Structures are given as C-alpha cells and as structure tokens.
Amino acid sequence: MLSKRNADAGLGVLLKAVIAVTAVFLLLPVMMTVIMSFDSRDYLGQFPPPSLSIKWYTKFVQNGYLWSGLHTSLLLATAATAVATTIGALAALAISRMSAQWRDPITTAFLSPLVLPGVIIGFALLVAFSAVNVLPTFLKMLAGHLIITIPFTIRMTLIGLTGISATLREAALSLGAHERQAFFTITLPLAKNSIAAGAIFAFAFSMDDLTISLFLSDFNTYPLPVALVGLMRSNFDLTLAAAAVFLMGLTVVILIVLDRLFGLERVIGHGIYRA
C-alpha cells in the first residue's frame, strides 16, 4: 500500500514537472520577444539587452508599410469572419438535419481544407485567378481565407447543434411555430456560443495566415504577416519584435472584450448545449 502511494505521489510530481516544462517552453519565446522589443541597441544582440528603450515601437508606429499591412489584415479578417460565420452556421444547420448516410461524407468534404497544406491551396488559387484575372487582390485573398476559415465555423457550429435535443424544435413546431420562428427562438439562441467560438477561430486564423496570402497579395494590397516577412528579408531589426508584441496585445484586448460581452469560458469551453 505504501509503495503504491509513493508511486502515485511520484506520478503527481512528474505530471507537475511536465506541466511546468511545457509552460516554460511555450511562454519563454513570448517573454524573450517582449523584452527584446525594448532593446536600446541598434542591432540584434545577445539576450538580455543591456538597457531598455521604446525606440522600436516608435519605428513601428512610423512604419507606413507595416501599418498598411495591419489595416489590410484587420479588414480581411473582419470580412472573412463575417462571411465564414454566416456560411458556416447555415451549412452546419443543413448538415445537422441530413440523414447519417449523407451527413458524414458532406462534413468530410467541407472540412477537407484543414488537411491540405496552405501552400497547395495558395498555389491552386493563384493558378485559377491568373486564368481569370477579374477580381481585385483583396477579394482574391478573401476567397483564400474563406477556404481555411469556413471549416472552423462549420465544425464549431456542428458541435453546438449536436447537443441540442431535436425534441425542443419539434415541441416548438407542435405548438404552432413555423420553421423560421423555431430557428430564431430555439436553435439560434442555444447554438450562439458555438457560432461565436467558430467566429473567434476564423478571425484568428485569418489574421495569422501567411502562406495563402503570400501567393495572392501584391505590392499594393498585402496583410501584416506578408509585410513582416518582407521586412525581415530586407531589413531585419527589432521592429519585428515590436510588431509581434503589438499583435499579442491586440489579441489580449480582443479576448478581454469577448469575455466581457459573452464570457470566454462559455464561448469556448461550453459550446455544447445539454438538454
């Protein structure tokens, strides 16, 4: 009995050590980036920096190339999130009401872009749009971002719809409500957290996408990740670190706003409604 308790205690200590090492592994690069963004040196030197300064943030604010990319990224992510959430929610609703014979293959078809490398999607879209060059660059990138964001909105919405008992909708219909009323009064309120979670994933992946945008952008219309790569190739300095910290801060602000509006735990952690 004593040896079993010792073994359990040893496993507990090992688990805590693994968690601590994992946390350090994930957070250390972020902490180093934040500290190096305040480096006062004019070059990328050894860590830690000898003194601190905000000059790299000043250069980031004054860099029109990066701000133009940020503006495009925000517009692109907002548009992709709105369209992908609408399409994904409607597609998930239709899939959830299909028979099992059709539900699985159609769901697999919609989620298939998740297993394709972004390079393949980007190159395929580049070839397709080159053959029919009628769309502006922004709409080309929007089409590419929809391909990678719609699967997330469909998947998250399906999770929420799966947990909604069909008897609730049937009860509403039996009491005289038509399909539209049942959807807006029963289905949509119960699935809203899952839809919101899909929108969060869509926005995050659109803001972070590089591979598809790299194929579809041009010198006038480009998102921030493409701008950062271009700056890294032409003039590698710690303005990149300042831009990265700015993006991290923007992400934290968005999460705080979502937590105040929806409750982040309810949006991400409890997307399934259990009747």
Rank of each mutant, 00 (worst) to 15 (best):
T78D: 15
V61Y: 11
S206M: 11
M141T: 03
K16A: 15
A171N: 05
L173K: 00
A92M: 06
K4V: 13
M207H: 02
D104T: 12
Y57R: 04
F246K: 06
G118T: 09
T167C: 01
T221F: 00
S53W: 08
G118R: 07
S217C: 04
A128P: 00
F262H: 02
N193E: 08
G176P: 05
A197T: 02
T187A: 02
A128E: 03
A94P: 03
F246P: 01
G122Y: 01
P50A: 12
V226D: 13
L90P: 05
V13N: 07
R274T: 13
M156L: 06
M32A: 10
V257D: 01
R41Q: 14
L76R: 11
P29Q: 11
A9T: 07
P189T: 05
S174E: 10
I212E: 09
A131H: 00
Y65T: 02
A84S: 15
F152M: 07
A227K: 07
A128S: 04
A80E: 14
A204F: 02
L261N: 04
D218W: 02
F38Q: 14
I256H: 01
N133D: 15
M36E: 09
L11K: 15
G122H: 05
D259I: 10
T239M: 01
T211E: 02
V18W: 08
A199Y: 09
L27H: 05
F184S: 03
T211Y: 02
T187D: 02
L240M: 11
P105T: 10
L75C: 10
L173N: 00
N220H: 05
T58C: 10
F205W: 09
V119S: 09
L11H: 10
L188C: 00
T107R: 12
L66R: 07
V257Q: 02
P189E: 04
L146R: 10
D42P: 11
L139V: 02
R103K: 14
